[in-house]
Simulated assay, not measured.
Amino acid sequence: MATTARPSEVTGRPAPARLTGAQRAALRHVRSVARAGAPPPGALPPDAAGLLATVRDHARITLNFHPDRLLADGRTLAESLAEDGVYRSQYETGLSNGSRTAFPGGLRDGWEDALFGGAYHAAGVRPAERPKYGALNLRQYPDGAAPRFGSCHVRLRPAVNARATFCHNDSHLGPAHLGTADSFAPVLAALLAEQPDAAALVRTLPHAPAPASPGRSLDAYVEAQVHGPLSLAEDAEALVLDPSFDGTETGRLLAEVAARSGTEVEWHTGFALRPHEVDAEFRGPVMVPLAARICSSYARRGVLDAEVLGRAAASVVREPAAWAQWGSRDEVLQYVKQLWHVLVRFGHPASGGRGNA
């Protein structure tokens, strides 16, 4: 049964979302692991208490997603989001821009069993109860904390941190450093060991302006798992879009649901490449001819961007025979995903940035 999270089980302050028993158990488990793995003396700077409070109260989780990818029912993610303003997990949508194994017995299922102490594997737990994945955007990158997972992102309100769990690097790696908003020290210590300048960044979070340039972060991030429901109206601070969707049906749907939910719409500068600019080594030699094939079919200006890749991905799902020379449906979708990584890593700004809509 869903119950309102009690302050003592989260961060000592009320959390507005209603959490189920499984979701509360997942938070308790990660908190206990974090407290048992507290960093040794000297691993954190003298102002650690202030840093931890700043992360808790001011850091934003971003959830990167591709709005034009097709769900199992044939709708796009943007169409689903526009219907009720609810952001759903990969267990509900059947869609993932990371590991495509979010089903009982799949790899993602096994990772979650270990990460959350079996909380989501108890009898009667529904797919809708599973967490939603994002990353902690401590550097306030305009393309989100983990753009490898999507061209657009939802920026959550800091209050959502109270019902999130965190790990240093991606959860599929079996991370050793876990945390919650009120037990974040192991994650912060691991982050500072890898990125010593992160302490200075955290100190400026309440007042520093966001950088204009994208972070292009493909591998280095603090992963966040958000437990409980996520709605744009209650939990989102902004919906940040890629400029390639400006003037498209996808962009219109996202702008409309943002307006209905009272959520700001912002635009980052995007990523664009011409086929001859695609790196042949970063994700393998197939990227260059695939980029040329996609651009010849879908790019009106001969430029590869997020929207063009989305149309190609939809074609792979709807008419896989047209892509048979490139491999199976899943193989080609993997190539398209990797081509997006190339765009993030090497792409030029697609626009000068539009600011708030």
Rank of each mutant, 00 (worst) to 15 (best):
M1T: 12
S8C: 09
G12D: 07
A17W: 15
T20C: 14
A25L: 15
R28T: 12
S32I: 09
S32C: 10
S32P: 06
G37N: 05
G37E: 02
P39R: 07
P40Q: 04
A43L: 00
A43V: 00
G50H: 11
G50S: 13
L52C: 08
V55T: 11
H58M: 09
I61E: 01
T62M: 03
F65C: 10
H66M: 12
L70E: 10
A72R: 09
R75Y: 05
A78H: 00
E79K: 00
R88A: 05
R88D: 03
Q90I: 09
E92F: 02
L95C: 07
G105K: 00
R108N: 09
E112I: 00
E112S: 07
D113P: 04
D113R: 15
F116W: 13
G118S: 01
A119P: 03
Y120W: 14
R126I: 03
P127A: 03
P127V: 01
Y133R: 00
G134M: 08
L138K: 02
A145M: 00
A146G: 04
P147N: 06
F149G: 02
S151L: 05
C152Y: 01
H153I: 02
L156R: 02
P158D: 01
N161P: 13
A162K: 05
A164T: 05
C167E: 02
H168Y: 15
D170W: 04
D170K: 04
P175Y: 12
A176D: 11
A176Q: 13
T180F: 14
A181P: 01
A181N: 11
S183A: 15
L188F: 09
E194R: 15
E194L: 11
A198M: 15
A199Q: 13
L201P: 02
T204I: 12
A212V: 15
S213I: 10
P214Q: 04
P214D: 03
P214L: 06
G215Q: 01
G215N: 01
R216T: 00
R216A: 01
A220V: 14
Y221F: 15
V222R: 02
A224I: 11
Q225G: 07
G228F: 08
D235S: 11
E237T: 03
A238S: 12
L241S: 00
P243W: 01
T250Q: 05
L254Q: 05
S261W: 07
T263F: 01
E264Q: 14
V286R: 14
M287A: 15
S297R: 14
A299G: 10
G302M: 13
E307V: 05
V308E: 00
A314I: 12
V317N: 11
A322G: 14
W323C: 06
W323D: 08
W326S: 08
S328D: 07
S328V: 03
V332H: 12
V332D: 13
Q334L: 15
Y335G: 09
V336K: 00
Q338A: 15
W340R: 15
V342T: 14
V342M: 12
F346D: 05
G353W: 02
G353Q: 03
G353H: 00
R354K: 14
G355P: 01
